[in-house]
Amino acid sequence: MSIKPILFNTEMVRAILDGRKSCTRRIVKHDVEAILNSPYHKEHPEVEDEQIISKLCIPPYQPGDILYVRETFIQAAANIFWYKADDKLWMSKDLLWKPSIHMPKKAARIWLKVTDVRVERLQEITEEQACMEGTDPWDEACYENNGWHPTLSDPDSGGDPNMIDGFHKLWNSTIKKSDLDYYGWSANPWVWVIEFERCERGGVDER
């Protein structure tokens, strides 16, 4: 077991706090095409691509790892931290928030235990997995292809949201515009699928 940091943007931190997010996808940062065209692959054509990538690439996390979430924050006092995801009314809009990458471990308030790690293509995500990613079911992207839009007065006016379409938008919002051709939804990159559950600070299960 290792204790490692993991970064989430403000929207995803809120999804974790709300209990809507228990999974994240991260780009496989290896030359996957070279791996799939490697001598090993040619010698073992019966082995699935996912198995070869899992064998020859090192995932960023392993089942059992404990992760502390780095999020946008500010240090208000010696051992007092405020978090942008809380969005309290008393928080000034002019606060000089610090990027999540700079958050020290001692400021972490969200701890996660990795329960599963696997590799797959981005577009292989299912509706259930899109929900586990923290996709907002009220996002208009979930309804653009349904021909209807729910309203607060009549949320059941037409059908269920398409969570994969919502995740498509969510994923692209996390990718730099210059990288969309390589890592965006349409590029269908290989990703690590990392499932997790909340735990106490240091890794002790809440249950």
Rank of each mutant, 00 (worst) to 15 (best):
E43T: 05
D165F: 07
E11P: 01
P137D: 03
N188R: 01
A130E: 04
F73L: 08
Q123I: 10
T24D: 03
G64M: 05
N146M: 09
G159R: 08
D136F: 09
L170V: 06
P60C: 10
E120F: 03
F81Q: 11
E140Y: 12
K29D: 14
S153G: 03
T72I: 13
G158L: 11
E50N: 12
M12Y: 08
R25E: 08
G203D: 06
A77H: 03
F8V: 07
A141C: 06
E197F: 00
L89H: 08
D154W: 10
P39I: 08
G134T: 02
E128Y: 05
K106Y: 03
G159N: 09
I66F: 09
P150Y: 04
E140D: 14
I58F: 13
E128N: 13
F167D: 05
G134H: 07
V28M: 10
R70T: 01
N162H: 05
K176N: 09
N79Y: 05
F196G: 01
D139H: 14
I6M: 14
M91Y: 14
K4E: 05
A107F: 07
E144F: 00
D18V: 00
N145G: 02
H102T: 12
F196L: 00
P60M: 07
K4D: 02
S2G: 00
S153C: 07
W97R: 09
Y183H: 06
R14K: 14
P161S: 06
S92P: 04
R121A: 04
P155K: 03
R14H: 01
K4S: 04
S2F: 07
V13S: 02
R121E: 02
W190R: 13
I35V: 10
I53C: 11
E48C: 12
A77P: 00
P137W: 06
V204K: 15
E140M: 14
D94P: 03
H30L: 12
I35A: 08
S173V: 05
E200A: 10
K177G: 01
L122G: 11
N37W: 06
W138F: 15
L36G: 09
G19V: 03
V69M: 11
Q51L: 10
F167I: 03
